Simulated scan of single mutants.
Amino acid sequence: MLDSHDVDVESRRALVTAAEELAADGLLGDSVLADPAARLPEPLAERLADVLRPPAPGVGHRVVRGLFAGFTDPGPTPLHWRETDRERCAALDIALVLVAARFGRVFGWTDQQDGRIVHNIVPSPGCEAMQIGSSSTTELAWHTEDAFHPDRADLLLLVCVRNPDGIGSRLSTVSSAGLDERDIRHLLRPEVAILPDDSYEDDTAAAREPVGMATLWEREGSLGLRYDPSYSRLLTDDEEFRDAYGRLGRALEAGSFGVPLAPGDLVVIDNDAAVHGRTAFRPRYDGTDRWLKRILVRSPRQRPARESLEHGYGQRQVDAHGGRPVLRV
């Protein structure tokens, strides 16, 4: 069942006005948080307080309908994220970053999308059958975002820019998997190595010593999930563990549900409670294809202490909160 909330027209207009004023000063979404004065106006933040909250762990997601629906059309869907017109997207990107900052520390990765904070997820020629966001004709399999890294996002924000074919995201939660105690006990063991996915411009990861990671861990009142079978290798031949891992995948599929996305909609995903994916579709590459924007957020959430020993394959974060000079256009 969707946890869905609508936003009133007045709040949408106030968000557009605030973002356009910052964009008029030459700020971009990737740089706006380096300006200490850049934030949501307090009256708007108060009006949005009830909807801009993290999802409940057992639910794993929150949909905010129409929050970004008032922005000017950013132009045709680019064929590659590098082709995005960041000046034309500036107001929308700024609004997304300011909203994301209400949840925690906004960041990017140095080797993903050139270290940008606002990621553009568009189907790209040559990527159709890959297991990355720019794929299309193959189903995007269940995954925890950046599961390979101990400092992966706690929350993942997705905003729909364009979706004429109604291609929704898919979600499934560990709470809906219905695992028995025996399977949970096996999956708490650090027996899975997860590599960075192919969206990272780094060809050295496979040469690093694999690190055993637990698929599940115990959170307060719930379980945490770390799962990306497309980029995983099991480090044990224990048939009971392998069977439990397989049952988890089947249970996530059985408990899955779709999230319809219209332009302006925001989906907040608890990256420790839910995995996400996408159905296959046929891209047109004519400027009308599906286009999402993505933001990663780290909150003060605790994860298992053993994760601090992981090398994260050398991937480094880009901190949006003053981590680099303000960019002007």
Rank of each mutant, 00 (worst) to 15 (best):
P41K: 09
L44P: 10
E46A: 15
R47E: 11
L48H: 02
L48R: 00
L48N: 00
D50H: 12
D50P: 05
D50M: 07
L52H: 09
L52W: 11
P55L: 03
P55S: 07
A56N: 08
P57W: 03
P57D: 06
G58S: 09
G58Y: 06
G58C: 04
G58K: 07
V59D: 13
V59S: 13
G60Q: 02
G60K: 00
H61W: 07
H61T: 09
R62A: 06
R62P: 03
V64W: 00
R65P: 03
R65Q: 02
G66D: 03
F68R: 02
A69R: 00
G70S: 02
G70W: 00
T72C: 11
T72K: 12
D73F: 04
P74K: 02
P76R: 05
P78T: 06
L79M: 13
H80Q: 12
W81A: 09
R82P: 06
D85G: 04
R86L: 15
R86H: 12
E87G: 14
E87H: 11
E87L: 15
R88D: 10
C89D: 14
A90N: 03
A90R: 06
A90H: 05
D93H: 10
I94N: 04
I94H: 10
A95W: 02
A95P: 01
L96M: 15
V99S: 00
R102A: 05
R102H: 05
F103L: 09
G104H: 05
R105E: 15
R105G: 10
R105L: 14
R105V: 11
V106D: 02
G108F: 04
W109T: 08
W109A: 12
W109L: 14
D114S: 15
G115H: 08
G115D: 10
G115R: 06
G115T: 08
R116T: 10
R116E: 13
I117R: 07
